[in-house]
Computed example of a mutant assay.
Amino acid sequence: MAAFKNKDNGTWYVQFRYTDWKGERQQKLKRGFATKREALEWEREFLMEKQADVNMTFESFVALYERDIKPKLKLNTWLTKESIIKKKILPYFATVTLDELMDNVFEGKSAVIENLLYTGAYILAGAPKIGKSFLVAQIAHHISTGQDLWGYKTHQGTVLYLALEDDESRLQRRMFRMFGVEGTSSLHFATNAKMIGGGLDEQLEKFVREHSDTKLIIVDTLQKVREAVSDSYSYSSDYEVIGKLKQFADRYGVCVLIVHHTRKQPAGDSFEMISGTTGLLGCADGALLMQKEKRTDTLPCSLCLTFGGGGLPSCPNPLHDI
């Protein structure tokens, strides 16, 4: 490789030949580098990219991915992916070569409910009064007692249920209605909590330190723990609020299940019915969606599941009727 200096303006340029993916010889010229080193580095990255070399930097690999996938996606879908890449991947891997990345060993996510819930942040969304609180109460009880749920194996541990739209009397009636007088010391309730970024982190951290076997924290509902900044939230604020809960979940290896509402308007993709922007689902590890034809129907609800982090199964069709 060689770099040349432009005597007219003092900048550097590279000019070289390479073999493209068709096996044909091509010529490349790139001008405007401030230093010889920058010019040579650019040429090296370019050639590795064209040769699909595993020693290219991860940043170059991401650039390749963007050029390939962006034209094939809807704008909102790409913006979600781009935000995840820039905020959750590139800050850690920008200077790591692909070869080095593939040599790393990462700990996988632990299952809380096999093939359903793992460590991380998940959204459970459904229309008002559809039965979300009954569903999360059932999930909480099964994990705290170690009972299988709908045939899925659970991993027993302590559960914290922030029932922020209830009082203790209402909670007692619901739990009695569902489980009778059978109790468990591994299921904890709270009917008030501080806001995200305003003390909730510290409250949850204190609980997890006191209960080292905590598997699940339920936040019912999201609106009760986020600051009301305006009538509508932006993509960045939605992403940030879920991001803070996800950071906590990842730091302590627990599952945080966040109860939220769906919007009234129909959508082509069921998960686009989740109230708010795509920033909520974009940052979450996955989402569960409760649906029924009419809220007043006595027929069972359908529960669908999608994962956003990759490496885990997704279920575009109803997962279970409840």
Rank of each mutant, 00 (worst) to 15 (best):
A2W: 11
A3S: 15
F4D: 00
N6P: 03
K7W: 02
T11A: 11
W12M: 11
V14D: 03
V14L: 06
V14E: 05
Y18D: 00
W21P: 06
W21R: 14
E24A: 12
R25S: 14
Q27L: 00
Q27H: 11
Q27F: 01
L29D: 07
G32P: 11
F33M: 07
T35K: 13
R37W: 06
W42Y: 14
K50W: 01
M56G: 06
F58A: 05
S60P: 08
A63N: 14
A63H: 12
A63G: 07
K72N: 02
T80Y: 00
T80F: 05
K81F: 11
L90M: 13
V96A: 05
M102T: 04
G108E: 11
V112L: 04
I113N: 01
E114V: 13
Y122A: 08
A127P: 04
K129F: 08
K129L: 12
F134A: 01
A140G: 13
H141E: 08
S144A: 15
Q147Y: 10
D148A: 14
D148G: 12
T154R: 04
Q156P: 01
L164W: 01
R174G: 03
R177W: 05
F179I: 00
A190Y: 05
A190M: 09
A193M: 02
G197V: 11
G197S: 04
L204Y: 02
E205V: 07
E205A: 15
E210G: 06
K215L: 02
L216S: 08
I217N: 04
I218C: 09
L222E: 04
K224R: 15
V225N: 05
V225C: 12
S232N: 10
S237W: 06
E240K: 13
V241A: 13
V241E: 12
G243D: 02
Q247K: 14
F248A: 11
R251L: 09
R251V: 01
G253Y: 04
V256W: 02
T262G: 08
A267T: 14
F271I: 02
G279I: 03
G279K: 12
A287F: 03
M290Q: 09
M290E: 01
K292R: 15
E293V: 13
K294E: 06
K294S: 03
L303P: 08
C315Y: 07
D321A: 10
I322M: 05
